[in-house]
Simulated assay, not measured.
Amino acid sequence: MNISNVAPTDEIIMSKIYIIRGEKVMLDRDLAQLYGVETKQLKRQVKRNIERFPKDFMFELSDQELRDWRSQFGTSNDGDKMGLRYTPMAFTEQGVAQLSSVLNSPLAIKVNIQIIRIFTKMREMWLTHKDILLKLEELENKVAGHDREIQVIFDYLKELLNPPQPPRRRIGFNVKDED
Rank of each mutant, 00 (worst) to 15 (best):
N2A: 07
S4I: 05
A7Y: 12
I12P: 00
I12Y: 06
I12C: 00
K16E: 05
Y18K: 01
Y18V: 00
R21I: 06
G22V: 03
G22A: 00
L27G: 01
L31S: 00
Q33W: 10
Q33H: 14
Y35S: 00
V37P: 03
T39R: 15
K43M: 07
R44C: 05
V46E: 09
K47R: 00
N49P: 10
I50F: 01
E51V: 15
R52F: 13
F59N: 02
E60V: 06
D68N: 12
D68V: 00
R70K: 12
R70L: 09
G74K: 04
D78H: 06
D80S: 13
G83F: 03
G83S: 10
R85N: 01
A90M: 05
F91G: 03
Q94I: 08
Q94V: 09
A97N: 02
A97S: 12
A97F: 02
A97D: 02
Q98H: 09
V102K: 04
N104G: 12
L107S: 06
A108K: 13
V111Q: 04
N112A: 08
N112E: 15
I113F: 00
I115K: 08
R117I: 12
T120L: 11
E124W: 14
M125K: 12
W126A: 06
K130S: 09
D131H: 15
I132Y: 08
L134D: 01
K135R: 06
E137Y: 04
A144R: 13
D147F: 07
R148G: 05
V152L: 14
Y156C: 04
L157W: 05
L160S: 08
N162M: 11
N162W: 06
Q165N: 14
R168F: 15
R170D: 13
G172V: 13
N174P: 06
D177F: 03
